[in-house]
Design a protein around this nucleic acid. Sequence first.
DNA 1: GCAGACTCTCAAGCTCAGCTTGAAGGGAAG
DNA 2: CTTCCCTTCAAGCTGAGCTTGAGAGTCTGC
Lengths: 256, 256
Amino acid sequence: MATTNHTQAAQVPDGDDDERRQKGMTIGVVCKGLAQEFPDISISKIRYLEDQKLLNPRRTAGGYRLYSPSDMVRLRTILRLQRDEFLPLRVIRQELASGRATDGDGKVATESSHAVASKRKRRASVSVTDGGAMYALEDVLEETRADPSLVRELEDYGVIKGELRAGKHYYDETEREIIGAVTELARYGVGGRNLRVFRSSADREAALLQQILAPALRSRNPERRKEALEALENLAAVATHLKHLLLIRDLRKIAK
Amino acid sequence: MATTNHTQAAQVPDGDDDERRQKGMTIGVVCKGLAQEFPDISISKIRYLEDQKLLNPRRTAGGYRLYSPSDMVRLRTILRLQRDEFLPLRVIRQELASGRATDGDGKVATESSHAVASKRKRRASVSVTDGGAMYALEDVLEETRADPSLVRELEDYGVIKGELRAGKHYYDETEREIIGAVTELARYGVGGRNLRVFRSSADREAALLQQILAPALRSRNPERRKEALEALENLAAVATHLKHLLLIRDLRKIAK
DNA sequence: GCAGACTCTCAAGCTCAGCTTGAAGGGAAG
DNA sequence: CTTCCCTTCAAGCTGAGCTTGAGAGTCTGC
């Protein structure tokens, strides 16, 4: 940790940067890179976080951990939630699982440590209005560590559809996250065929919400339409929250 | 926590209320009073908080602690910050010292109109493992601004069930939030009968998750069971996230 | 193809926050 | 005066969040 490097790239020839992006960084490199912002990071701590199911980096053939850029983002998020929001790991895990934990990123150099400002930043992926960003299949696979056959399955089921550009498949942000979530579920043993359950309930709800907001949505008055879109988004958020609560309620019966 | 009390108020005649306001309450009374919202409160814990300089109640000539109403507010704030925001005591102490801790219930009337669902801070309620806190019907109505008839409707539908203690209805944290969410939906025009949609999908998912974790949940090995419970919780979070993404996906088609 | 730096797993241990328990006693109220 | 309820203080317990060490394997450059 003692090394005083501002830019961690400085030590490394430019050529390696590409290589690192592809291959990922080893745990020691990751650790040194984070030592700037998080002085009490350590290799063993990073391994511990993995042990606690907060990370899941790729491995080399020999078993070495390889951290991708998105692993880094996730790791940084974890450390920030821990340091700034005082969240226990168990809660951070949940926050990440529920997609709630997009943090403010930033090359913000010296954020005076304990500024606990809750910044409500809405994720693009949970917004009805599409951001428009697209991601290549290979990037998505790398980032989510998804099984390619699972992606095909999702396409077959019509859950996602992607887009074909120049012979490559591209997915929007929501689709990317769907793939991530499904991959996560698969790790717990929820197979592709079970997704029908989720899909059909989403369809039913969408129909319900549409029905309620249909008049406003069809309005030619742009102001009114915008309001309707906002309402739609809020409704979606509340509906999701309610569904979660009902699920919890059911699970509690099961669990006891 | 040895004492076995069901009802905290029942033991005390009405006339004492004034007296208590002036003289303050003893630690035992305080403890019983808080037991509804904070089931794991205890006399020793309250004393511990004082030891940690978070409280400083008056004393009688004989050395008994006497808690004033403002002591109660402070104590409640402390417990809420600890339970809901996961703040360590050291941080709570600072927050209180710097006057930042205005949170909680309060008679703060300003929160009326534009309070658009900004209270997403709630974390405790999304856990499968029930905290055990209970809230009186009137408090819930006041807090969620729900229509009493709506609560009845929910009970009739079997969505919530409440608990009858000493002639009063009590609800747990999840039920309280369900009431809040449903109230919010009602404001957008989603009526009670539409809740079937949500309810049935929750039921289906619960069944699915149960099926997957059934063996582990039935395990007699407590360690294994605990792991299963954690997995259940994570699964619930991911499943909810996925449903949200799917809903968003559907709504996008509708919106455009 | 070997040295040396780096990494792996797994079990045990360590520290601190946040309480709990028990002993030994004094105050409050019927 | 008796019966709870309350007091302090010291010791102990539990779980979260890592650290350490042993023993073994991997990677990289020369």
